[in-house]
Design a protein around this nucleic acid. Structure first.
Lengths: 215, 215
DNA sequence: GCATGTGAATAGATTCACAGCG
DNA sequence: CGCTGTGAATCTATTCACATGC
């Protein structure tokens, strides 16, 4: 379920504010979803709530972290040292949540050796070695679209088994490899789609209010 | 439908390679989905295919662009001139797809006046003016989590009607405003969830193969 | 013959409503 | 009495299968 990470963040916030328990209603409010959905989602993890009271915040944090595999930390390799690679390399929320950037790689020899946050940029050709050395399981593609498929193939060949793709193109990977994508333009296009529909609705409304106004 | 932008990208690629027509099978292959899904999706736009032949690439591009509201261009305001704001401001795929970054704003006075791509960073307090002047309808939140809700409120107050949120927190907006989020940590956590399940499966498999090896 | 377009079948996610328990 | 946990009902998305038309 894609909502567990959201719950987790809300719960961690609450734990930091020393709250002991939380009801599905409250958590639903914070997470921006319905209370029934929260209860269904949490019931997948087991029956960790107390009727009449709610859920124990600490315990729920533990259970969700376990479910998401966040008890261990995950070494991450970023491919692409452009603007996006920089942003990702500097992103503090990463380290905080158990994802450690062990390397940033790029094909451009001028970028190799420069620093990005904690890491020094290495060459893409050393990917196999880097992945093996750090036991990296997750790779992030932050390259232009035209390079994405080749990078994906190399990541897979190097032994990576999960990929997060930021390049605006579809990449194919073997069924054994998990793949998710984050696509900027797609998100904006979905927003423009909704905007355009709102505008159309509005025009329709106006026409109904002043029939014959057009023509 | 969240797949139209993907189809659009595939179709534009094909158009650039001077291909006239495409079958649902082919497009499905490129977009990484099933052929039936492609046909259902496209049938929403109307019956623009030719039986026995396929779809006319140019025409379909036009129809999808129209459906998504990409005939007009959309002025975009980016809030936050940190690493992510930089990456977004420099992202070329933006301009190419009809989204024009008209301003980057930040609260930090030291950042005001610096350049990001085409734009010069302005102060968040001038948001109202900027939005009105450029008729911006879309705002992007690229700030730390703690600032996200206030920024969202300001964007709404300034007259923005669609928001793309990159901050790792839930923001609330009025029902009239479209909202989408892109959340790095969430994506990584979903990947780690899958990895962890793969590992569990594997352990189970090993136990079945060597029963009694554990105890 | 070949590929679309679409009703029907299926699967999946969400919501409802309430029994059950602290 | 309040809130969880969950079957049943509903809604939405996906897949199937084939009639339809070029």
């Amino acid at each position: 379920m894609a909502r567990l990470p959201v719950y987790l963040r809300c719960l961690v916030d609450m734990a930091e504010r020393d709250l002991q328990t939380v009801s599905s209603d409250r958590l639903a409010g914070l997470a921006g979803v319905g209370p029934a959905k929260v209860r269904k989602d949490l019931s997948y993890l087991g029956s960790y709530g107390t009727r009449g009271v709610g859920y124990d915040v600490e315990y729920l944090v533990y259970q969700i972290r376990r479910e998401l595999g966040l008890e261990q930390d995950w070494p991450v390799v970023i491919v692409g040292a452009g603007h996006l690679g920089h942003a990702l390399g500097h992103y503090a929320g990463f380290q905080a949540r158990g994802f450690r950037t062990v390397a940033v790689v790029d094909v451009d020899p001028r970028k190799v050796g420069t620093r990005i946050g904690e890491a020094v940029v290495e060459h893409l050709d050393d990917l196999d070695l880097i992945v093996k050395e750090h036991h990296a399981a997750i790779g992030i593609i932050a390259t232009p679209a035209h390079a994405a498929q080749e990078v994906a193939d190399r990541l897979v060949a190097a032994g990576i088994s999960a990929i997060l793709n930021f390049a605006p193109t579809v990449v194919q990977v073997p069924g054994t490899v998990s793949l998710r994508k984050v696509d900027l333009s797609t998100e904006l296009q979905i927003l423009s789609f909704h905007e355009q529909r709102k505008a159309a609705q509005l025009a329709l409304g106006r026409r109904a209010a002043h029939p014959g106004g057009g023509r």
